[in-house]
């Protein structure tokens, strides 16, 4: 009985993973490689052949490449600030963590309130006398503004998750290491780069992997701010599945997102590898 107990406890979760994780992912792979019941790469050729594919691909990549580093720095700054604080720590942490609970769709709508034509950006600029008529920002003529708005919304929304992981990770580092470094003459900056950051690697791994994955899945923010004007991979997946009713190509898109996610996860794991004996 006792020997079987752990397996019994794991059974529901394992079965669930099997049915709702492994099986469907198998299905995606099969679906992306078949068309009308035959094995083919046509889904992929159709996908890459479509004019929106490379735009969607590069938009997603650029978005990730710009947003993630900015967020990493902001999250580290927020975490360090919080760490230094003696009073009001809990309150500040709560405020910083708020966007964690906000969906990408809501974040998109939040920034829509700022960027739309009768929005707050125009109102602020008007109040300062910079403009006298509201400007159109989110039109297809100014794609880069949409891109910028998406970047801002993403940075605003998803920095919190990295901050929380990093704060939690910093909490696991005993104060003594920093104190020891201080005694040996390290400045605050040196302590940060030579003690805190290296010891933080496991947390940075988690934070980066989660965040990069979320960046590849960017969808609702873009829909809210730019509709389909600014194509991204997840948005195209949705379009093919829903509007064009072509599940094969949607599955091919899914494979691209999946491939990017796994590849970048491995890269992060490799770059921030911590040898087993060197963990806290």
């Amino acid at each position: 009985m006792n020997r079987a107990l752990p397996y019994l406890l794991l059974l529901p979760a394992s079965l669930f993973l099997l049915v709702f994780f492994f099986y469907p992912f198998g299905l995606v792979v099969v679906e992306s490689l078949t068309r009308g019941g035959e094995w083919t790469t046509e889904n992929f050729t159709r996908m890459t052949g479509h004019w929106k594919f490379s735009t969607a691909f590069w938009n997603t990549i650029w978005l990730t490449a710009i947003v993630v580093p900015v967020q990493l720095i902001m999250a580290l700054a927020m975490a360090s600030v919080v760490q230094k604080l003696k009073t009001g720590r809990a309150g500040l942490l709560y405020i910083f963590a708020i966007p964690l609970g906000i969906s990408d769709l809501a974040a998109g709508l939040v920034w829509l309130a700022i960027f739309e034509q009768s929005g707050f950006l125009n109102s602020i600029l008007h109040a300062f006398g910079v403009i006298d008529r509201p400007q159109l920002y989110l039109g297809y003529q100014s794609l880069w503004v949409i891109f910028l708005a998406v970047c801002l919304a993403e940075i605003w929304r998803a920095t919190a998750i990295m901050m929380v992981i990093i704060v939690a990770g910093m909490g696991l580092i005993p104060k003594e290491y920093n104190e020891a470094a201080e005694v040996f003459g390290a400045s605050a900056w040196q302590r940060f780069t030579r003690v805190t950051l290296p010891l933080l690697r496991p947390s940075l791994q988690t934070a980066l992997i989660l965040r990069i994955l979320m960046a590849f899945e960017v969808f609702a923010v873009v829909m809210a701010l730019g509709g389909t004007t600014l194509p991204v991979l997840m948005g195209e997946t949705f379009q093919w599945q829903f509007q064009l009713q072509d599940r094969g190509v949607a599955a091919a898109y899914a494979m691209v997102i999946l491939g990017l996610s796994v590849a970048f996860s491995l890269v992060v794991l490799r770059l921030l590898h911590v040898p087993k004996g060197a963990r806290i």
Binding site: F21, L27, V28, Q241, A254
Partner: peptide
């Protein structure tokens, strides 16, 4: 893995 994609299959 990008789990929302599970919705497709």
């Amino acid at each position: 893995f990008p789990l929302p994609l599970l919705a497709l299959p």
